[in-house]
């Protein structure tokens, strides 16, 4: 068990390092210098000499590995960031300073991550209740018309591309009609928690409904398998109520694979719900990264979004693997 955890941890760290290095290298080795936007953005003409000067001051003339080393060291202990003529004191964890706004990336990350986390939590609450609920209901009515309607309905919903669902919901439920209030993220610090809630309500609902078919399919399949087991027959035979059998006995045994896909999905959601954020105008991590690639490109922001995304996905993978052993006693981690 211990050896397994150590091995998994090591490979997780390796994946995170490689992913962030990949983004770093892509920009470094790309055709235009990452310093180009800084040079152009300063108002004066961007001559090759000025560009070279700026690159030198930012440390971009060094080999890519060395620059990456400096960056990662900054994440751990903090560093001084130089952009052009200006110098910024960037405390640990330092992810650099935005080329565009000159704001500390770490500070903005803390702000941007809140709506993304809220959407991820809200959306998963919806798809867990709706998806697993439909799955259980369909399994309990296996073979009836109700079952078939639920199965084919969820297949149909899962076939529609997610962003179209989002777009149509936004256009027709908030702009054309007033069924849902204006969406967007209104920070809790504004002192109006109700507005925060209503602003994120539709994004969470759409995200939840669009993701629920996967859960419906998995939980139905698992429940159908489990409901055929002997211990369910025993439970029924000793006179337990149908609901108790369904939720306490069957669901407990069927939940393991659902937890697995939930863990992986949740990590992916935290890595940025780009479509949801862009369409519903929520200023989260995904939109942050998307805006950073529009010229003028902002390398520090892009690096941090990929880094954070990889961390969330890798960590959720790790947690799923470890929790698996706890939930399912048959799994031996070796």
């Amino acid at each position: 068990m211990f050896g397994y955890v150590v091995r998994r941890l090591m490979s997780s760290v390796l994946v995170i390092l490689l992913a962030s290095f990949a983004v770093f290298a892509i920009f470094y080795l790309g055709p235009s210098s990452p310093a180009q936007p800084v040079c152009e953005g300063s108002g004066r003409a961007c001559t090759p000499e000025r560009l070279a000067n700026i690159e030198k001051s930012m440390g971009l003339d060094k080999p890519v590995l060395e620059a990456y080393g400096t960056y990662m060291k900054g994440v751990v202990v903090g560093r001084d960031v130089v952009i052009g003529a200006a110098e910024y004191d960037c405390g640990a964890p330092c992810f650099g300073v935005s080329y565009g706004t000159r704001a500390q990336v770490t500070d903005e990350l803390k702000e941007r991550i809140v709506p993304t986390i809220l959407i991820a939590i809200g959306g998963s609450l919806v798809f867990l209740t709706v998806g697993v609920g439909i799955g259980i209901a369909a399994a309990a009515r296996r073979g009836t018309i109700g079952d078939r309607v639920m199965v084919s309905g969820s297949l149909l919903v899962s076939s529609v591309p997610y962003y179209l669902l989002c777009l149509l919901a936004w256009l027709y439920l908030t702009l054309k009609t007033d069924i849902f209030p204006t969406t967007g993220y209104f920070p809790l610090s504004d002192g109006d928690p109700f507005k925060t809630f209503t602003g994120l309500l539709l994004p969470c609902l759409v995200l939840g409904v669009a993701s629920s078919p996967v859960y419906a399919r998995y939980s139905r399949g698992q429940m159908v398998d489990t409901l055929g087991d002997d211990f369910i027959r025993t439970a029924k035979a000793k006179g337990l109520r149908g609901r108790t059998v369904l939720f306490k006995h069957a669901l407990r045994a069927a939940i393991v694979p659902i937890v697995t896909i939930f863990g992986l999905d949740f990590g992916t959601l935290l890595a940025g719900t780009i479509f949801t954020e862009k369409i519903f105008d929520v200023q989260g991590i995904g939109v942050w990264g998307l805006d950073a690639i529009r010229p003028p490109q902002d390398l520090p922001i892009l690096t941090v979004t990929v880094l954070i995304g990889a961390v969330f996905i890798v960590v959720s993978n790790l947690i799923v693997d470890l929790v698996y052993g706890v939930l399912d006693p048959r799994v031996r981690l070796g």
């Binding site: 994946v15 983004v23 690639i293 490109q297 990929v306 990889a310």
Partner: peptide, 26 residues
């Protein structure tokens, strides 16, 4: 297997994000 795991844990859209500007600028 490591390469497979690596690509599986790399956020897809973010990867596309990172690669897109390279192409346009080249």
């Amino acid at each position: 297997s490591f390469v497979i795991d690596f690509f599986l844990s790399f956020p897809f859209i973010l990867g596309a994000l990172a690669l897109a500007p390279i192409i346009t600028s080249r």
